Amino acid sequence: MALSEHEQRLLDQLEQQLHADDPKFAHSMASDTRKSMSTRRLVIGSLITIAGILVLLAGIVYQLTIVGVVGFLIMGAGVYFATTKSRQPDAGQPEGRPSKTPSPGKSGFMSSLEDKWDERKRDQT
Rank of each mutant, 00 (worst) to 15 (best):
S31F: 15
D32Q: 05
D32Y: 02
D32S: 02
D32W: 02
R34Y: 10
R34N: 12
S36V: 07
S36P: 03
S36D: 14
M37L: 14
S38C: 04
S38D: 08
T39D: 06
R40Q: 14
L42N: 06
V43I: 14
G45M: 05
G45C: 04
S46T: 15
S46E: 02
L47A: 12
I48N: 02
I48W: 05
T49E: 01
T49G: 11
T49R: 00
I50P: 04
A51G: 09
A51M: 12
G52V: 02
I53N: 00
I53V: 15
V55H: 00
L56K: 06
L57E: 06
A58L: 13
G59L: 08
G59T: 06
G59I: 07
V61W: 14
V61C: 01
Y62N: 11
L64Q: 09
T65Q: 10
I66T: 10
I66K: 07
I66A: 11
V67C: 03
G68Y: 02
G68K: 13
V69G: 01
V69R: 03
V70P: 00
I74S: 02
M75G: 13
A77R: 07
V79Q: 01
Y80V: 04
A82N: 06
A82D: 06
T83F: 12
T84I: 08
T84C: 11
T84F: 03
K85M: 08
K85T: 11
S86L: 15
R87K: 13
P89D: 00
P89H: 01
A91T: 04
Q93A: 13
P94L: 03
P98Q: 01
P98A: 01
S99M: 07
T101R: 13
T101F: 08
T101S: 14
S103W: 07
S103Q: 11
P104V: 03
K106W: 03
K106A: 15
S107P: 01
G108I: 09
G108N: 13
F109R: 09
F109N: 01
M110S: 12
S112A: 10
S112G: 05
